[in-house]
Simulated assay, not measured.
Amino acid sequence: MISLLFAMDRNRVIGKNNDMPWHLPNDMKFFREMTTNQTIIMGRKTLESMNGPLPKRENIVLTRDADFSHPNCKVIHSIKELQKIINEQPEKEWFVIGGENIFRQTLEIADRIYMTHIDESFGGDTYFPEFNQSEWEITSEKAGTVDELNKYPHTFIQYDRKK
């Protein structure tokens, strides 16, 4: 199962200057809980934004750069290559974590979306692609707690692709 995991604002912003334009500890906690001991798939820029691979996860980097390598990541160069790896373990949940181009390439083959929707507008330069919501159903929706550390209203939404 391919799952897309991200946070976005009202305007679909997911990033700015290779970083997130918000600070939302609830979302980071959710991300950690979902991905620890799992496989995460990302583009090279996302890897660079995190200053390297995340611990306690298998890190796969999808990049067009044939010369790119990283000692603690599996590097692949195409969606076809990704699908081959996924097909070898179809019972497993694979987490695509960004960025924009990787989401664009995997949206059509994804089975699930975990979205943290932040009810605020931020400036940004990276967006989650438009998707046809009629192809998806909301299977879980939970409001996040707003407090002194989590200043923005946010909702954790799970979409599953309709069969």
Rank of each mutant, 00 (worst) to 15 (best):
I2S: 02
S3M: 10
L4S: 00
L5H: 05
L5D: 08
D9E: 07
N11F: 01
I14M: 07
K16I: 08
N17E: 13
M20C: 04
P21F: 00
P21L: 07
W22Q: 11
W22K: 10
F31A: 00
E33S: 12
M34H: 10
M34I: 07
M34Y: 02
T35M: 08
T35I: 05
N37Q: 13
M42F: 00
M42Y: 00
G43L: 05
R44C: 06
L47I: 00
E48Q: 14
E48F: 10
E48K: 09
P53E: 11
P53N: 09
L54C: 10
L54W: 12
K56C: 06
K56L: 11
K56I: 03
R57P: 04
R57I: 00
V61F: 04
T63M: 07
T63V: 06
T63S: 11
R64S: 15
R64K: 15
A66Y: 04
F68V: 01
F68I: 02
S69N: 13
H70V: 08
P71M: 13
P71H: 15
P71D: 15
P71A: 14
N72Y: 09
C73T: 08
V75D: 06
I76S: 02
I76T: 02
I76G: 01
H77G: 04
S78G: 09
S78W: 09
E81K: 07
E81N: 06
Q83H: 06
Q83F: 03
I85Q: 02
I86Q: 00
E88N: 12
Q89C: 06
P90V: 12
E91Y: 09
E91Q: 14
E91R: 08
E93P: 05
E93S: 11
W94R: 10
V96S: 04
V96Q: 05
I97F: 08
I97S: 07
E100R: 07
E100Q: 15
E100Y: 05
N101C: 01
I102Y: 03
R104F: 03
R104K: 14
T106F: 05
T106Y: 09
E108N: 15
A110G: 08
D111E: 14
R112E: 12
I113G: 09
I113D: 07
M115C: 15
T116Q: 10
H117C: 06
I118G: 03
D119P: 05
E120M: 11
E120G: 00
S121T: 15
S121G: 05
Y127M: 02
Y127E: 03
Y127K: 09
P129S: 12
F131N: 03
F131C: 03
N132C: 12
N132K: 14
N132V: 08
Q133F: 14
Q133L: 15
Q133W: 11
S134V: 14
E137D: 12
I138M: 13
T139W: 04
K142S: 14
K142H: 15
G144A: 12
D147G: 09
N150D: 11
Y152K: 07
Y152V: 05
Y152S: 04
H154A: 02
T155H: 05
F156L: 14
I157S: 10
Y159A: 00
Y159D: 07
Y159W: 15
R161P: 01
K162C: 10
K162Q: 13
K163T: 15
